[in-house]
Amino acid sequence: MGVAIRQAGTGDREALVRLLDEAFMQDPVSSWVFPDEAHRRRVHGKFLGVFIDMTLTEGRVDLAEDGSAMALWLDVPAGLPEEEDDTPARMREIADPENERAEQVGRLMGKVHPHDRAHAYLLMIGVTPEHQGEGLGTALMAPVLERCDREGVPAYLEASSARSRRLYERLGFAFMGTAVQLPEGPQMWPMWREPRG
């Protein structure tokens, strides 16, 4: 599938927030973090904006030229971080200070994130609902996965739905064996992809 992709910059921030907000509004994890849909509609974009700000600063955001899909990538070095990641606390503080789940989800995922090898981390990939199932996610991931294969770098992500898990398996990711069970909520599946020779 021929998809024109460009790297997004800070001037794209508001469009990126809108796109992720729309793409993940009905996601099982977003629905767990913000169970009340009216409340979710008010704070969800602020919550996801933290991911976008971090990736625009520290990683890369690949954006379909037509604005229908995006992927957030970080290059993660080997070894445990020197400082505790304050991203989960910032997400809660910015989006919904009274909501423990807004921080808890990030803390739970941080506990399972592998640190023994450097890797490309697909933090999030979002496709607008009307374009889901058209291959845009695969097209957005392909250039980074090709680079990983060329350079011998593994990749990592967390699938937030059974549907996305199946997509990632088709792209060479394998479930790492232990799902993250959100308290009284859905599962997330940490997945790892070895580079292909």
Rank of each mutant, 00 (worst) to 15 (best):
M1P: 10
G2R: 14
I5H: 03
Q7E: 15
G9K: 12
G9Q: 12
D12R: 07
R13N: 07
R13T: 07
E14Q: 14
A15G: 15
A15C: 12
L16P: 09
L20K: 00
E22G: 07
E22I: 00
F24T: 04
M25Y: 13
Q26H: 15
S31C: 13
S31R: 15
W32Q: 12
F34C: 11
D36F: 08
D36M: 06
A38G: 12
A38M: 06
A38E: 15
A38T: 14
H39Y: 10
H39L: 09
R41I: 07
V43L: 09
K46G: 15
K46A: 15
F47E: 02
F47K: 02
L48P: 09
V50G: 04
V50R: 08
I52S: 03
I52G: 10
I52N: 07
M54K: 14
T55S: 11
T55W: 01
T55L: 06
E58W: 08
G59S: 09
V61F: 07
D62T: 10
D62S: 15
D66F: 05
G67H: 11
S68D: 12
L72H: 01
W73M: 05
V76R: 11
P77Q: 11
G79Q: 08
E83K: 14
D85G: 06
R92K: 14
I94P: 00
I94H: 00
A95H: 09
D96P: 02
P97Q: 03
E98A: 15
N99E: 12
E100Q: 11
R101H: 08
E103G: 10
V105E: 08
G106M: 09
G106E: 07
R107E: 10
L108I: 10
G110K: 07
K111D: 10
H115F: 05
H115W: 04
R117C: 06
R117N: 03
R117L: 11
H119Q: 08
H119K: 04
H119F: 07
H131V: 01
G133Q: 07
E134C: 11
G137V: 06
G137M: 03
T138S: 14
T138V: 13
A139V: 00
V144E: 14
C148W: 01
D149T: 12
G152P: 05
A159P: 09
A159F: 00
A159L: 04
A162T: 10
A162W: 04
R166K: 13
R166N: 10
E169P: 08
E169G: 08
L171T: 07
F173D: 01
A174W: 00
F175W: 10
F175H: 11
M176W: 03
M176Q: 13
G177D: 12
G177N: 09
T178K: 15
T178Q: 15
A179P: 09
V180W: 04
V180L: 05
Q181K: 13
P183D: 07
P186G: 01
M188S: 11
W189N: 03
P190L: 00
W192H: 03
P195T: 03
R196F: 06
